[in-house]
Design a protein around this nucleic acid. Structure first.
Lengths: 249, 249
DNA sequence: CCTTTTTATTTGCATATGCAAATCTCGCTT
DNA sequence: AAGCGAGATTTGCATATGCAAATAAAAAGG
């Protein structure tokens, strides 16, 4: 396996050697060519293949290890790390996990699903480009039997075609996507709005009660993956993040 | 100046040498011993003082440079960097800046100020410890003449005694604190609430309209600096953050 | 067969050395 | 005085070398 995969490492000649090596390996990981768990060639192999000294190769890999892209252990070697499940700041990527961390039982129900060409309203709202083929889902998540959050999701089927054949009966789409796609960019927007009457009814809150609206979109490189609109009853939820001026602590 | 300051760099003998050096320098910066702009001793000076090789010193400083704590230029030397003004994720540290980036004129008004022992309600709300001496300010920020955000702030005078003599007539307390204090930790909490009647009146919005509540607390090491409660009219505001799985992009 | 010991591989750390690039300083020339 | 050029200082990069620590795999012993 290592004989074939090492040929994928190619330098672009731009900038310092250690940085070329760092980017070459990083790009193979981000492109999915080396999925999590893959063995990265040992330093001496990269050294021969690339004609660099071990210290230079080491410098590149040590930096990737600090950034969390790879895991290194003496004698065992280096493997590609799994993307961190959660992020320091305001990251609620998995609703089941979020609910269980509150010590409550989790369940969910799919209210509606419709696949096909995106109507203009949706493609505009999510900036997906006109006439994109999408899966459109509406779900309600429960914490201990009570409504927790209302989810409105669009999945871009050109990027994730497998999603068309997935029922999401076992795993809600957010978690399924985390496992079945690779994202490199995400955007969060948080705002406060009053619930619409039908939304208030589903969430079992007063009509026009204040709600926290989280809109998240994710991409792999330039390809849109998914866009989601999460509506949380305002009184019950707060998003907390802790950090320092030089990055997450 | 370099002769005196270099003696401040002392190693603790724990862990790899390059990391001891890295932490020693970092701690001097975070403690404020070397404020922004201070010249960090050149590599050869640290090398002699610490008995390490230049490569080892270089490794420590190069890492601090990557982290943004110091700025390095050939021949000019190394200086302590100013803390980054803004942060990738949901960081609205300066309201004047935030308003001006929207292309609107900024102004503010102090509604109330009271200094002294914190009443229980405030010390509890901000977890400042009973009987802390504080400055308590309420202000309203305007964007283009219209109310933008309502601010309710507590400053811990034991940590920032200069704040007692500052009128905040020129600079609102948030920005003043950014310039006059050094923070190492911050905590954000975001939630949605309905405005209280008097708040709605000040912000000129409908009573009980949904609002975004941002509560932020900052510390230097373990010392609390300030706690603030920012109430944004919900319809007009969203907080957006963009990032990748391995950190801000 | 199971356990212990040895060996080999791989990463981690530190040093010494050399050269290159940037740029500040100073002195020289006009 | 102004501009130019040479030299000095400081960081950046890369190499070669050696040893140490961790640990997987193989060998030895019961």
């Amino acid at each position: 396996m290592s004989a074939t995969q090492i040929d994928a490492v190619t330098l672009d000649g731009a900038g310092p050697l250690y940085d070329q090596i760092r980017r070459a390996v990083r790009d193979l990981i981000l492109a999915g060519t080396w999925p999590p768990g893959t063995a990265v060639p040992p330093e001496h192999a990269l050294m021969e293949k690339l004609g660099a000294s071990r210290m230079t190769v080491h410098r590149a890999l040590a930096q990737l290890a600090r950034e969390g892209l790879i895991l290194r252990r003496r004698r065992s070697g280096t493997i590609v790390a799994s993307p961190p499940a959660s992020h320091a700041m305001l990251d609620i990527l998995s609703i089941p996990q979020e609910v269980r961390e509150l010590g409550q039982a989790y369940s969910y129900r799919i209210l509606q699903r419709r696949d096909g060409k995106a109507p203009r309203e949706l493609s505009d709202r999510f900036e997906l480009g006109r006439s994109a083929t999408i899966a459109h889902l509406t779900l309600l998540h429960f914490a201990g039997g009570a409504p927790h959050v209302l989810e409105d999701r669009v999945i871009h089927l050109a990027t994730i075609p497998q999603a068309a054949d997935e029922s999401f009966a076992e795993t809600p789409p957010g978690d399924w996507l985390l496992q079945n796609s690779l994202w490199t960019q995400a955007e969060h927007a948080i705002s406060a709005i009053a619930a619409e009457p039908h939304e208030a009814e589903l969430l079992k809150i007063d009509a026009a009660a204040p709600c926290l609206l989280v809109e998240r979109r994710t991409w792999n490189q330039a390809e849109p993956i998914t866009a989601v609109r999460l509506l949380y009853p305002g009184g019950r939820h707060r998003f907390v993040g802790r950090f320092g001026p030089y990055g997450a602590v």
